[in-house]
Measured scan of single mutants.
Amino acid sequence: QKPVSAYALFFRDTQAAIKGQNPNATFGEVSKIVASMWDSLGEEQKQVYKRKTEAAKKEYLKALAAYR
């Protein structure tokens, strides 16, 4: 399975908490809140997710090379 983006990892980590705080929110509303949070996130915090994405990408490429 291809690795997901840094934003997708952040979304996955954040979505449940947002939904818990806003139980009646639609998926679209939750998405807007998470997107706003991502935009206001500091670069250092974004780097945490970007590093996770890079590590997953390297593992994916290694597994793909081994498969071929």
Score class of each variant (00 low, 15 high):
61 L>G: 13
42 G>W: 00
29 E>G: 00
36 S>N: 11
68 R>Q: 11
61 L>D: 15
53 T>G: 13
58 K>A: 12
14 T>C: 01
58 K>E: 13
35 A>L: 05
36 S>C: 05
40 S>E: 12
66 A>Y: 09
32 K>Y: 02
44 E>Y: 00
4 V>I: 14
36 S>K: 13
40 S>A: 12
42 G>P: 09
62 K>H: 11
2 K>R: 06
26 T>V: 01
40 S>N: 12
51 R>S: 11
7 Y>E: 06
42 G>R: 06
54 E>K: 09
62 K>L: 04
5 S>E: 11
12 R>Q: 11
22 N>W: 07
23 P>Q: 06
53 T>P: 05
38 W>I: 00
34 V>N: 02
19 K>S: 09
17 A>S: 09
4 V>F: 08
46 K>I: 04
59 E>Y: 02
24 N>P: 01
61 L>W: 07
7 Y>L: 02
62 K>Q: 09
9 L>A: 11
65 A>G: 13
40 S>T: 14
10 F>I: 00
57 K>H: 14
58 K>L: 08
28 G>K: 11
41 L>V: 05
57 K>S: 11
57 K>T: 10
24 N>T: 13
44 E>C: 12
43 E>L: 09
22 N>S: 03
42 G>H: 10
42 G>V: 02
10 F>W: 00
13 D>M: 02
53 T>F: 15
65 A>R: 11
30 V>M: 08
10 F>K: 00
43 E>W: 04
19 K>Y: 08
39 D>G: 07
47 Q>E: 11
28 G>L: 08
54 E>C: 06
31 S>G: 06
63 A>Q: 14
63 A>T: 12
7 Y>M: 08
51 R>G: 11
7 Y>Q: 07
7 Y>W: 03
65 A>C: 11
32 K>E: 08
21 Q>H: 07
59 E>R: 08
17 A>N: 07
58 K>F: 09
65 A>V: 11
58 K>Q: 13
28 G>P: 13
56 A>E: 12
26 T>R: 06
22 N>D: 04
53 T>M: 11
11 F>P: 00
47 Q>G: 09
19 K>G: 02
2 K>Y: 12
60 Y>G: 09
61 L>P: 13
10 F>Q: 01
38 W>L: 00
17 A>T: 13
9 L>I: 15
29 E>L: 01
53 T>K: 12
66 A>C: 11
42 G>L: 02
51 R>Y: 07
12 R>I: 06
66 A>V: 13
29 E>A: 05
12 R>Y: 08
25 A>P: 00
58 K>R: 11
47 Q>S: 10
2 K>E: 03
55 A>L: 11
39 D>M: 07
22 N>C: 04
36 S>E: 13
20 G>D: 15
52 K>R: 12
1 Q>Y: 14
51 R>A: 11
9 L>W: 07
11 F>L: 07
8 A>G: 07
37 M>V: 05
23 P>A: 05
50 K>S: 07
26 T>M: 00
36 S>P: 02
29 E>Y: 04
16 A>D: 13
42 G>C: 13
56 A>K: 15
6 A>M: 05
40 S>M: 08
39 D>Y: 06
54 E>F: 07
26 T>S: 13
55 A>P: 08
30 V>C: 05
6 A>K: 04
42 G>N: 14
56 A>F: 02
23 P>R: 03
24 N>A: 07
41 L>Q: 01
42 G>E: 12
36 S>G: 12
4 V>N: 12
63 A>P: 14
34 V>I: 08
